[in-house]
């Protein structure tokens, strides 16, 4: 045999079609309609924010891998870092200061992912842990939602994001999201806001960059589901987890203190959570039963935290909390081995 044969002697000699890079790019493709819509709704702010996150994310990942060893930098090109950065950018407010995005991508790529051993070994969802980190460390900038009607041109956006990003000149542009309004109403006893459902579904109200248009996120999600990249257990579990307590509290709870479950169904963050955040395979359990329970509890927590707690959006907290229980869930729901 003149040529040196493949070193692996055992195991199948042939392989199916699925590739890691292909998988990641398909998920990015599923995200792209909602992304393009965000560019349309928020104008340049969204585009610059996305570029900032992705480029700084790639650089951080490349450097982190290079520090580990020369051979590993190849892993920086497998699209998983890009996906986490896009998800992070979509869950941040559009017109935030530039360091918000760079710090976010540092926390998500370097601390939450590479420090734990790189792709496949991180225990917490990188995008969500960065979002929680930013929400806790700089709440002011994280809750400044750009009003879609007042989006600015390229030059103004750049000025806002890079030069005078401090608070004062910034308030003019912001407005409250539906969930914000509901929380304020609950605290101050004002009548509940009755949001325009179709408006929210199509996505022209304010909110984090990617979580605006529930319809396009649903579209991307359906594509992922039917092309077999994700399994139904995680999205179904999450949606059940959100809708069950929502309808329960809406029916049983005292009149006028809880939003109708429909609002949650059309809210962008629910669709984003169901199809893109919860379904991150690395930080979710592997067995179907464990996946359903995992997603259900995330849904329930992400409903309870804004309902009874301080923070308007509970998804990121819920995801981190449940990520830490994944090893236990897997040990609990281990399927019966053949013949045992």
């Amino acid at each position: 045999m003149e040529k040196e044969l493949k070193p692996i002697k055992q195991g199948p000699a042939v392989h199916g079609k699925s590739q890691l890079q292909l998988l990641m790019l398909k998920v990015v493709l599923a995200l792209s309609p909602a992304l393009i819509w965000a560019f349309y709704v928020f104008g340049w702010a969204a585009f610059i924010a996305l570029m900032l996150t992705c480029v700084s994310g790639f650089v951080f990942e490349w450097v982190a891998l290079r520090l580990r060893s020369r051979g590993r930098t190849r892993q920086a090109y497998d699209g998983s870092g890009l996906l986490s950065c896009i998800l992070l950018a979509m869950s941040l407010p559009p017109m935030g200061p530039w360091w918000l995005y760079v710090l976010g991508s540092f926390v998500s790529i370097v601390i939450t992912k590479q420090l734990f051993g790189g792709l496949g070994q991180n225990v917490f969802n990188p995008a969500m842990s960065a979002r929680v980190f930013l929400l806790l460390s700089c709440p002011a900038y994280m809750t400044a939602w750009l009003d879609p009607d007042k989006k600015a041109g390229l030059v103004d956006t750049l000025r806002y994001m890079f030069i005078d990003w401090h608070r004062e000149s910034y308030d003019a542009l912001t407005t409250a999201t539906t969930l914000d309004a509901w929380r304020n109403a609950k605290l101050t006893g004002l009548p509940l806001p009755q949001p325009e459902l179709t408006d929210m579904f199509v996505g022209s109200t304010a909110g984090s960059m990617g979580e605006v248009s529930a319809m396009l996120l649903l579209l991307g999600g359906m594509y992922l589901l039917f092309s077999g990249i994700i399994r139904w257990h995680l999205p179904a579990g999450f949606l059940a987890g959100v809708m069950l307590p929502a309808t329960l509290f809406w029916l049983l709870g005292p009149e006028g203190t809880h939003l109708s479950p429909l609002v949650y169904l059309v809210a962008g963050s629910t669709m984003m959570g169901a199809f893109f955040i919860v379904t991150d395979p690395v930080t979710a359990p592997v067995t179907p039963h464990a996946r359903f329970v995992f997603a259900f509890l995330i849904g329930a927590l992400s409903y309870l935290i804004p309902a009874y707690g301080l923070y308007p959006v509970g998804l990121s907290f819920a995801v981190l909390l449940m990520n830490s229980t994944v090893p236990l869930l897997e040990r609990l729901f281990r399927p019966r081995i053949f013949g045992r």
Binding site: L136, I305, L310, Y311, S316, F317
Partner: peptide
Amino acid sequence: MAFLGFDG
């Protein structure tokens, strides 16, 4: 950090 979500 995640447990801070239960704040309030």
